[in-house]
Simulated assay, not measured.
Amino acid sequence: MIEQSFKIRFSEIETTVPPAPGLYEIVTDEGKLLKVGISGNLRRRLVQHRQSKQSRLKLKEGGNWSNPNDVQSKQSILAKHLFFHSPTPGYDLKTESGRQSFLEQRCHVLVIVTSTREEAREMEKLKEQSGAYQFVGVTQAQRRG
């Protein structure tokens, strides 16, 4: 059962999002759907995405920072997706501060608080199947051409 839904900026997470289960969608201000996800604690998860910590991106031994398969995300897969995203004018998404600025200045979050994480997971499955989200599953290298 959906308990509440709302739209926020990343800077409003602590004051608006409860530490409850639910679904979130990260959307650019132009309406491009970037990511859908769930959590048992929406506030904590969205804070992790907002922080987009560089220190939580780890290079595999002998790996190369230009290969998505060599980079692991230890906290926010969104940070990895953005790191390998095509260039975004005005934002260096290869840096923590660039990703943080992009999320705060150019994106918002649609939040749906649910009764259970399982309910949120069922909603997420349907949304992912739509194919509308840019960041789903593993991170792929950007195609040139």
Rank of each mutant, 00 (worst) to 15 (best):
I8R: 05
A141N: 08
G31D: 10
F10I: 02
S86W: 05
D29T: 10
Q129H: 09
K58F: 10
V71E: 05
H108I: 04
K127Y: 10
P89A: 11
R144Q: 14
A20R: 13
M123C: 08
K94N: 08
S11I: 14
T95E: 05
K60D: 06
G37S: 05
N64M: 10
S11K: 14
R143A: 14
S66L: 12
R45N: 02
G22W: 00
S76M: 10
E96L: 07
Q105A: 09
R144V: 14
M1D: 13
E61Y: 09
S115W: 04
S76D: 08
E30N: 09
M123K: 12
G63T: 03
Q51K: 14
R143Q: 14
N67A: 07
S52I: 04
V17Y: 03
R45K: 11
F6Y: 15
I38C: 03
P87Y: 10
E96C: 07
V17E: 02
S130W: 07
G145A: 12
T114A: 09
G40W: 04
Q48I: 09
T139I: 06
E61T: 13
W65G: 04
Y24G: 00
L78K: 02
D70G: 02
L110P: 01
V109W: 01
K58G: 03
S5G: 07
W65M: 06
K127L: 15
L46Y: 00
E128F: 08
H85N: 09
S101A: 15
G63Q: 03
L110N: 13
L59F: 06
H81M: 00
K80V: 03
V113K: 12
E119H: 07
C107I: 05
E12V: 04
C107T: 09
L46P: 01
G137L: 07
H81E: 03
P68K: 07
I112N: 02
T139D: 03
K94D: 03
E122L: 11
F102W: 09
Q129K: 15
T16W: 07
R45A: 05
E14F: 12
K94T: 15
M1E: 13
R117L: 11
P18R: 12
V113S: 08
E61F: 10
E30L: 10
R56D: 12
E25G: 01
R99I: 06
I77Y: 09
G31H: 10
M123W: 11
L59P: 02
D70R: 03
G90S: 12
S73L: 05
K74E: 15
N64C: 13
E3Y: 09
S73K: 04
K32M: 13
T95D: 04
G98P: 01
E96R: 08
Q134S: 11
